[in-house]
């Protein structure tokens, strides 16, 4: 006998526990699925299904709402441009907007729950991608925070020297280019040091390497994957009907 709140708790944790491959698959499957959104009703049903799944399965709606805002912006731009360039048809334009929501929203929200290190383990062990590439990419991703901080320091150093972004697009472009250049120098220097450290730990010849942690696939993962496939297939089926 399972108490309802306990079951709900278990449901809400599912996305947190989920195999990152499942999350990635769910976010990617919807891309071809969204091509079948050819009318407003199909789009609304597909979007509604995803929203429902989100409300039931997500541990918290706050990050989802943040990302919904960004996707809405893209959607509005598509609605406007389709109305303007697609013969001023409101229905077509709204359909295009909903299609973009269906296309982008699931992935944007699920990205919050993908652990890059776990994903690397899965890509290397379950999908059998070349180990050195997967491991080096995972190692490079550890540099993200550091590079983000470097970006801030570069910005600070430029402002201290009398330069900063402004409303002038040309000047702002130059400013962005200067920051980007310096960021890349810093990243490349880091990459050289990192390769030295990795080679000193035997990475150069690690064509056959082992993995310290196993990957696991649970029944829950299978269930979530089926749900992902079903949700992505929904607009296709509706369109075929």
């Amino acid at each position: 006998m399972t108490r309802p709140e306990a079951r709900q708790h278990q449901l809400r944790g599912a996305v947190l526990r989920a195999n990152p491959l499942v999350l990635l698959a769910a976010g990617l499957l919807v891309v071809p699925g969204s091509f079948a959104v050819r009318s407003l009703p199909i789009g609304l049903v597909a979007l509604g299904a995803y929203l429902l799944a989100g409300v039931v399965l997500l541990p918290s709606l706050r990050p989802a709402l943040g990302r919904l805002g960004v996707v809405m912006l893209a959607s509005v731009m598509v609605v406007y441009s389709t109305w303007l360039l697609g013969g001023h048809e409101v229905d077509t334009a709204l359909t295009a907007g909903v299609r973009v929501l269906v296309l982008a929203l699931p992935g944007a929200v699920l990205a919050v729950y993908v652990d890059p290190s776990r994903l690397a383990d899965e890509l290397g062990q379950r999908l059998g991608l070349p180990a050195r590439f997967v491991v080096a990419t995972s190692a490079a991703l550890q540099r993200f925070d550091q590079l983000g901080q470097t970006w801030q320091h570069l910005d600070r150093a430029r402002r201290a020297r009398g330069f900063g972004p402004s409303r002038n697009p040309v000047r702002t472009f130059g400013y962005a280019a200067s920051l980007t250049f310096a960021l890349l120098v810093s990243a490349l220097r880091g990459a050289t040091q990192m390769s030295i450290a990795m080679d000193a730990r035997g990475f150069a010849d690690a064509h056959r390497r082992t993995w310290a942690e196993p990957v696991v696939w649970t029944v829950e993962d299978s269930a979530l994957l089926c749900l992902g496939i079903a949700l992505a297939a929904l607009p296709v089926i509706l369109y075929a009907l």
Partner: peptide, 16 residues
């Protein structure tokens, strides 16, 4: 090279 200290130390032995 890794997000957690255990896996970071494991990098060399994995390569071997």
């Amino acid at each position: 090279v890794a997000a957690r200290i255990g896996r970071d130390v494991a990098f060399g032995p994995e390569n071997a």
